[in-house]
């Protein structure tokens, strides 16, 4: 209980600092660079969450233990949420920095595709009733989808010109990680924020999977008593 409280305080402090900390001057971005404290960690977390979902999908296929599937779906749900947050924050920011809400920049495309993939994943899950079949097929789909994701995140931004820092044509080099020179303040707060996001993810993930597992256990119990 106490650590949840502490986490709340921690996130609150980071949120306040994100607005007030001096970040130095960054050409072309200025104060708008502050989005990095919210937008980038949630993008990372969504990818990590999807990755965890895939790991649990593989574990499900190995063990056929339905709890692994529950965890996989839980992680995918949270990933979807973070993905959504990333899209919305990025889109609002883009309006002020690049002039329109959506520009089909490669990285915008890739986040959009992640939304589509996991949208499709949840549609697939809702289209299958038999639990084992649902678990198996959605596990396979998430793995197949995940192996195509690197094509977006790592390759597309390099062959296509983009607007994001770190795209093709950006002198700092191309890659999924934004590498422009960060002020030391900014760097510390960014990683602090990333840590905060990670803890929030772990907390929701545990809560969500425990809830679903308990649901299954209760249903099993009811079933046995009938």
């Amino acid at each position: 209980m106490i650590w949840k409280f502490l986490l709340g305080v921690y996130i609150a402090i980071i949120t306040i600092l994100a607005f007030v900390i001096p970040i130095g001057f960054i050409p072309g971005l200025g104060e708008r660079a502050r989005i990095i404290f919210l937008h980038v960690p949630s993008a990372w977390l969504s990818v990590i969450a999807f990755f965890v979902a895939m790991i649990y999908a593989v574990r499900y296929l190995r063990s056929k233990n339905i709890y692994e599937d529950v965890k996989s779906a839980a992680s995918a749900e949270i990933g979807f949420l973070f993905c959504f947050v990333t899209t919305v924050t990025g889109s609002i920011w883009a309006k002020f920095n690049w002039g329109s809400f959506w520009n089909w920049d490669p990285r915008e495309t890739s986040i959009f595709v992640l939304l589509l993939i996991y949208g499709a994943y949840f549609v697939l899950r809702s289209a299958i009733e038999v639990e084992e079949r649902k678990a198996t097929l959605s596990a396979v789909y998430s793995i197949i989808a995940f192996v195509t994701v690197p094509f977006f995140i790592f390759i597309m931004p390099r062959i296509m010109p983009g607007l994001h820092p770190g795209s093709k044509g950006d002198p700092e080099g191309a890659g999924p990680v934004v590498t422009f020179k960060m002020d030391p303040n900014m760097r510390i707060l960014f990683f602090a924020s990333l840590l905060g996001f990670t803890l929030v993810y772990l907390w929701i993930f545990k809560l969500r999977s425990r809830m679903e597992i308990l649901k299954i256990k209760i249903q099993n119990k009811i079933y046995q008593e009938v």
Binding site: L116, G119, A120, A127, A145, T148, F152
Partner: peptide
Amino acid sequence: AKANTKGTLYPVLSFPVLLP
């Protein structure tokens, strides 16, 4: 082929995978 709504599901699942 193993899901219930085969026809409509197919492009929905394929599109994001095929997009790159």
